[in-house]
C-alpha cells in the first residue's frame, strides 16, 4: 500500500471518528434536559403564566416534538454545514464566536507551537550530545522548572514583575493592535514564554533520552568514521529517528496544554481566546457554544492524530502501511 492510499484511508477513518463523536453528542443532548425549556417554564412562572404551556410552546419552537431520526438528520446537516446556532451567552452566531476565539488563540499558540517544536528537540539533542556536562544539567533544570511550575502562577508572577513593577509590557491585553506589530509581540511575549516553558520540558526530555540511544549507534560510528561533522551527524542521523517517538509526545502534549493551560494563561493575561470562550460557555450553560467548542477541540484532536500518523510514515520509511 502506497503512502497516498494510506493517507486517504487515515482521512476516511478520521471522518468516521468525527461522525461517531457527533452522533454520541446528539444522543447525550437528546437524553439531557434542555436548559432553554427550563428557562421558558421559569419565565412563564415569573410572569404568572402556565409553565407547562410554555414548555410545550418552547419544545415546538425548537423542533423537539419531531421524531428522533428527523432531529438527528437535522442535527447532522447543521453540524456539517457549519450552522451551529446562536450563542445566547455572547449574543452572536456560534461559528463567529469560535472564529473570534481562534483568532486570538492562534496569535499566541502558533508561535508557542513553533517554538516548542523547534527548541524542544534541539535542546534535547544538544543535551544528549553533551550528556552529564554542566550544559546538560542547565538544560535539564530549565526543563524541569518549566514543567513543574504551574502556568497560572508563573504567568501572574511574570505579569507582576514585567507588567506592574518594571512596566515593560501592558497589563491589559488589547485587541485593537495589529496582529503583526511590535505592540502585539510585546503583549504576547509573556503568554508565549509561559506556555513554551510549560511544554518544552517533556519534549526536551524525551528527545534527550531518545537521541541518547542513537548517539552510540553503529550508523553514528560509521558516520563519524567517514568524517561527517558532529552537527550534520546529529541533525541528520540522530534527529530523524528521534522525531518518530517524539511526534507522539508532541501531539499529546500540545493538545493537553491547548485544552488546559491555554485557558489559565488566557485568564491571567486577559486574552479572549478559545479556552476562555469555552470555559465561560460551560459556566453559562450556553449549550450551542459548548457544543461548537467541543467540536473544534475534537477536530483538532482527530487532525492531530492524523498528522501524527502521517509524520510517522514520512519520518521512518521502514514503518509498514500494511500493518496500520
Amino acid at each position: 500500500m502506497g503512502l497516498a492510499r494510506y493517507v486517504v484511508l487515515r482521512v476516511v477513518w478520521a471522518a468516521v471518528v468525527s461522525l461517531v463523536i457527533v452522533t454520541a453528542t446528539f444522543v447525550l443532548m437528546a437524553a439531557a434536559p434542555n436548559p432553554a425549556i427550563q428557562e421558558a417554564a421559569t419565565q412563564a412562572a415569573l410572569e404568572g403564566g402556565d409553565p407547562q404551556q410554555a414548555v410545550e410552546r418552547e419544545r415546538e419552537l425548537r423542533g423537539l416534538d419531531e421524531p428522533l431520526h428527523v432531529r438527528y438528520l437535522d442535527f447532522l446537516t447543521s453540524i456539517y454545514t457549519l450552522e451551529w446556532g446562536w450563542s445566547d451567552h455572547r449574543s452572536q452566531p456560534v461559528t463567529e464566536a469560535l472564529v473570534e476565539g481562534l483568532y486570538y488563540t492562534a496569535q499566541y499558540s502558533i508561535p508557542w507551537t513553533v517554538l516548542t517544536v523547534l527548541i524542544g528537540p534541539l535542546v534535547g539533542v544538544y543535551s544528549a550530545a553533551n550528556m552529564y556536562s554542566w550544559r546538560d544539567h542547565a538544560a535539564t533544570a530549565f526543563a524541569f522548572f518549566g514543567y513543574a511550575i504551574p502556568n497560572f502562577f508563573f504567568g501572574i508572577v511574570l505579569l507582576l514583575l514585567f507588567g506592574v513593577w518594571l512596566d515593560w509590557i501592558p497589563v491589559v491585553y488589547r485587541t485593537d493592535v495589529a496582529v503583526f506589530s511590535l505592540e502585539n509581540a510585546r503583549q504576547l511575549a509573556l503568554p508565549v514564554f509561559v506556555l513554551v516553558t510549560g511544554s518544552i520540558g517533556a519534549v526536551m526530555r524525551v528527545s534527550r533520552n531518545e537521541s541518547a540511544e542513537f548517539r552510540d549507534a553503529t550508523f553514528m560510528k560509521t558516520a563519524k568514521a567517514k568524517g561527517v561533522s558532529p552537527f550534520r551527524a546529529y541533525a541528520y542521523h540522530v534527529m530523524r529517528p528521534t522525531l518518530v517517538p517524539l511526534s507522539t509526545t508532541l501531539v499529546s502534549q500540545l493538545l493537553a496544554i491547548f485544552l488546559g493551560s491555554s485557558l489559565l494563561v488566557e485568564v491571567v493575561f486577559g486574552i479572549p481566546g478559545l479556552g476562555r470562550l469555552t470555559f465561560e460557555a460551560l459556566v453559562a450553560q450556553d449549550t450551542n457554544l459548548v457544543l461548537g467548542a467541543t467540536f473544534v477541540f475534537t477536530f483538532v484532536a482527530v487532525i492531530g492524530n492524523l498528522l501524527e500518523d502521517i509524520a510517522f510514515s514520512v519520518l521512518d520509511p521502514r514503518i509498514s502501511y500494511d500493518d496500520r
Binding site: 505579569l159 497589563v171 485568564v267 476562555r276
Partner: peptide
C-alpha cells in the same frame, strides 16, 4: 471597558494606570 477576569491583573492595571 476591558474584560479582565483575573483579579491580580485588574489590580495591576489600576496600579500602572492602564485602568
Amino acid at each position: 471597558i476591558s474584560v479582565v477576569e483575573e483579579q491580580a491583573s485588574r489590580l495591576g492595571a489600576l496600579e500602572t494606570g492602564e485602568a
